[in-house]
Computed example of a mutant assay.
Amino acid sequence: MTLEPGGAAAGAPGAPRRPGAGVPFLDLQAPYAELRAGIDRAVSRVLSSGRYLLGPEIEAFESEFAGYCGTAYCVAVNSGCDALELALRALGVGPGDDVLVPSHTFIATWIAVSAAGARPVPVEPAGGGTLIDAAGVEAAVTPRTRAVVPVHLYGHPVDLDPLREVAHRHGLHVLEDAAQAHGARYRGQRVGAAPSVAAFSFYPGKNLGAMGDGGAVVTADAELAGRLRMLRNYGSRAKYRHELRSGNSRLDEVQAAVLRVKLARLDEWNARRARLAGRYRAGLGGLDWLRLPEAAPWAEHVWHVYPVRTRHRDALAGHLAEAGVQTLSHYPVPVHLSPAYASAGLPAGSLPRAERLAAELLSLPMGPHVTDGQAEAVLDAVRSFRPPE
């Protein structure tokens, strides 16, 4: 199984419950078992080459992933958080700027803005959902606002066209956080397709995951891609010629080679996730105490996780743990209430929608390798739960 980066330890609030046997939250051994021969060949090819950084595997993966997304350029870096930070810097966002971010997201979205020197300004999710929308963004724009980072959370795209129209009127950059949305489609186009600038994570638990950390930015802008390539490599286009102040954020050749193997299976694995999501909906749709995730008619959801909502979240999580079903809460501590952002001056109650989601969301086991028997075990366990009076 896996946690989000920096995930809670077992037994802590929001931590996955670890049964001795049963249904894991996510099986990371199964993908390797399925692709063992191809992955072993790819890794051996790199190890035998003697070229471990910025070599042919990176070039090939960048070309293949850009083509998969439907855009011109991909710049691979060493994490999804770095992808966001470097993209913001490449767009010219920095000290003195405000960047609009979702109030409900993984902390990396906010951290990347802070690392770029800007200030993250939270926007609450629209209505009773988990995603921000154009109306919320419009209401949050001030003269200091320079960019907005919509997050395609849990595998579902944000409604981008109205948001882009707002951004265009106010002169804002739009940087999509697609860390959980590899292969998702918005109105027929993949997330990251031109004219998007989108940041991806290849953390091992993602729909397209490496065997370590990794990330990438995709764009149709050649100049932006060029700046990103400098920013990931000490601000340099050529060895010992440093044009920008920057550090090291290179994806290595081994990870690129592994990602190339997995990319060929991504659509198939996303389809398996969608079938499992459909099975959950069919089996749990009649429970009046449980709210299930939905997909908009214009979106192709890739079901990075399957978060259900209930005011009985903790009791349900305990019940499922006893039944051998491992779950995870996304995200049990809202970013504005974390110690990292205590100085932001956003007390409890200031972002009620994010706080309610933090108290009610519980993610069920989801992945391309959940078996029929495991899916039935999850359904049986959830249906056997009796909410407390």
Rank of each mutant, 00 (worst) to 15 (best):
M1T: 10
A216K: 03
T327G: 14
E176W: 08
L316P: 11
G11K: 13
Q374L: 03
F385Y: 09
G80C: 05
Y280I: 02
V370I: 13
A33T: 11
A76G: 13
T130W: 04
V333C: 07
G7E: 01
R356N: 02
A354Y: 05
K206W: 00
R169P: 06
Y52T: 13
E59S: 15
N233L: 10
A9G: 14
P120I: 00
R291K: 06
V302N: 05
A8V: 14
A8S: 15
V46D: 08
S384A: 15
S249D: 00
H156A: 13
L276H: 00
A296C: 02
L160T: 03
P31E: 02
Y68S: 03
E243Y: 14
A277L: 05
T109N: 10
A220D: 07
N78A: 14
Y203R: 00
A42R: 15
L259I: 01
V148C: 01
L263D: 11
D40Q: 12
R232K: 12
A199W: 01
A179E: 07
G127D: 14
I107S: 06
A42N: 14
A135V: 13
G14H: 11
G38I: 03
T145Q: 01
Q180D: 03
T310W: 07
S246G: 09
L266C: 00
R309W: 09
R281P: 02
G117D: 01
G192I: 08
V335E: 00
P5H: 11
A139E: 01
N248T: 08
P95F: 02
H330D: 02
G215D: 06
A12G: 14
Y73L: 09
G22P: 03
E376D: 08
V158Y: 03
R250N: 14
V137W: 07
P162D: 03
L320S: 11
S384Q: 09
V137G: 07
L346H: 09
N207G: 03
A193Q: 12
H319K: 09
D82V: 05
G324E: 05
E85Q: 13
P368M: 04
D252S: 14
A257R: 04
A193N: 12
G80V: 08
A354E: 03
W303R: 00
A256M: 03
T105K: 04
G278S: 06
S343E: 02
D97R: 09
V121E: 00
H312C: 11
R272D: 04
L153A: 07
F202D: 08
P352G: 08
S329N: 15
A9Q: 10
L361W: 01
L47K: 14
A30M: 05
L224W: 14
R169L: 08
Q189T: 06
A116S: 12
E64D: 15
V137N: 06
R190F: 04
R260P: 08
Y186H: 07
L357Q: 08
R185K: 13
Y68C: 02
K239T: 12
V378Q: 04
P143R: 15
V325M: 11
E165Y: 11
L316F: 12
A348S: 12
G209P: 00
S350W: 14
P5V: 13
P143Q: 13
A274L: 11
G80T: 05
A344I: 00
V46W: 07
V149Y: 10
Y32Q: 06
G80W: 02
S338P: 01
P56R: 06
A33Y: 08
V333Y: 10
D27I: 03
E223M: 04
N207S: 06
A9N: 09
D221C: 11
Q189E: 04
P332G: 09
H312N: 11
A115D: 08
V101L: 01
